[in-house]
Amino acid sequence: MSGWGVGDIPDQRDRTVIVTGANSGLGAVAARALAGAGAQVILACRNVDKGRAVAAEIGDRAQVRRLDLADLSSVREFAAGVEGVHVLINNAGVMAVPLRRTVDGFEMQIGTNHLGHFALTGLLLGKISERIVTVSSGAHAIGAIDIDDLNWERRTYKRWPAYGQSKLANLLFTFELQRRLTAAGSAKQAVAAHPGYAATGLQSHTESILDKVMALGNRLAAQSAEMGALPELFAATAAVEPGGYYGPTGLGGTRGHPGPSGCSRRARDELTARSLWDLSERLTGVKFDFTG
């Protein structure tokens, strides 16, 4: 029996979806698929020229707006320009980059992958009517949250543990967001997804020999970006469990059609999730309002 695919996306007419990082890779694939199912899609991109090229392929169901998740002023400006949206897909991310910092001084991976999306979600929460989907990674399993040094100011920076920390933060955030939505009596859903091992441009920005190694891996072992985008599309449109986590169901979760995915014990640590939430509010200055 064939698995869930783009053809199974429910009718998306009269719905608006924001996809961060929709100028390339999984985000571009997701934007095309959602628009193909009838949605109005806002491509939230740092590189608006690349975003416009994707939007031109999609047509009048797509619009491009600038969003730099590594700059909280850009996040605030973007959020202020949104009137209402059914689904937010926190898709954008960076992976295993050399040590550098965001405009606000955060380590780039935790700043972009988690803190930028945390702030964006908080600023938009009252304008989102249905779901918040956040894209994590199987690499969350190598991550650990250091509440005392989240931004690698005292530790010796290590790019892969930093990436793992940011992807673990994505899951802790999603699960804690769902707990808070439920406690507030909200029908909104927080859902997480991961693409397995998918060939995208994400693997080409480490600025090291790993770029060539991962490019070879993309050709030999990875599934396509079209398959890698299916879990986030499933999380955004299918009947899912609130607080669920979805990814490929084949070959150890690295490839195949989407379904429920397991996660590490650390991702289910509610004490760490609350501590990370409080720290994220302090660092970003964004507090969530669950009354709307």
Rank of each mutant, 00 (worst) to 15 (best):
F106K: 02
F106W: 13
E107D: 14
M108T: 02
M108Q: 10
M108A: 15
M108V: 10
Q109A: 00
Q109G: 04
I110R: 02
I110P: 02
G111P: 06
T112P: 02
N113M: 07
N113Y: 04
H114E: 07
H114G: 07
H114C: 13
H114P: 14
L115T: 02
L115Y: 00
L115N: 03
G116C: 01
G116K: 03
G116E: 00
G116M: 04
H117Q: 15
H117M: 05
H117L: 06
H117A: 03
H117D: 08
F118T: 12
A119D: 13
A119P: 14
A119K: 07
A119I: 04
L120H: 06
L120P: 11
L120R: 07
T121Y: 00
T121W: 01
G122N: 11
G122T: 02
L123C: 03
L124M: 12
L124D: 13
L124Y: 06
L124N: 11
L124I: 03
L124G: 12
L125F: 01
L125V: 04
G126Q: 02
G126C: 05
K127C: 10
K127S: 10
K127R: 15
K127I: 01
S129I: 08
S129A: 15
S129F: 06
E130L: 13
E130P: 10
E130Y: 09
R131A: 04
R131Y: 12
I132P: 07
I132H: 03
I132W: 00
V133Q: 07
V133W: 05
V133N: 11
T134A: 10
T134I: 15
T134D: 00
V135I: 15
V135M: 08
S136Q: 09
S136G: 14
S136T: 14
S137T: 12
S137C: 08
S137W: 08
S137I: 12
G138D: 12
G138K: 00
A139N: 05
H140D: 14
A141I: 08
A141Y: 05
A141C: 08
I142A: 07
I142M: 11
I142S: 11
A144L: 04
A144E: 15
A144H: 14
A144T: 15
A144G: 05
I145K: 09
I145A: 07
I145C: 08
I145L: 09
I145E: 08
D146C: 11
I147K: 05
I147P: 04
